[in-house]
């Protein structure tokens, strides 16, 4: 596993996908907060969350954890591996 996980093109593409899905979910959540009875928005939310979970599972297997619950390796603590999100190399 590459310790500079985001240098890997596959990991970069996966993270771009997660970021896009998370943003779409965020927007849907804000909408649902105001319109909790909107069935169409709720359906959209479930579709996005399903895609998001798949993308995060794939990223955490191949690239490293996204949250403290996602350290998939049983032999190595990967959570602290840089680059961190604010580093130039991570973006």
């Amino acid at each position: 596993m590459d310790k500079h996980n985001n240098c890997n093109t596959g990991c970069n593409a996966l993270m771009r996908r997660i970021r896009a899905l998370d943003f779409a979910i965020q927007e849907t959540v804000l909408y649902l907060d105001a319109y909790p009875d909107c069935a169409e928005a709720l359906e959209h939310y479930h579709k996005l969350v399903c895609e998001r979970n798949t993308a995060v599972a794939e990223y955490e297997q191949q690239c490293g954890p996204v949250t403290i619950f996602g350290n998939t390796s049983t032999s190595k603590w990967q959570w602290i591996n840089g680059p961190w999100p604010w580093h130039y190399d991570a973006n």
Partner: peptide, 15 residues
Amino acid sequence: RYSMPYDEVVGILTD
């Protein structure tokens, strides 16, 4: 965290 040069320290500060 932003000026910390070591991942171990960035990790503990984040968490």
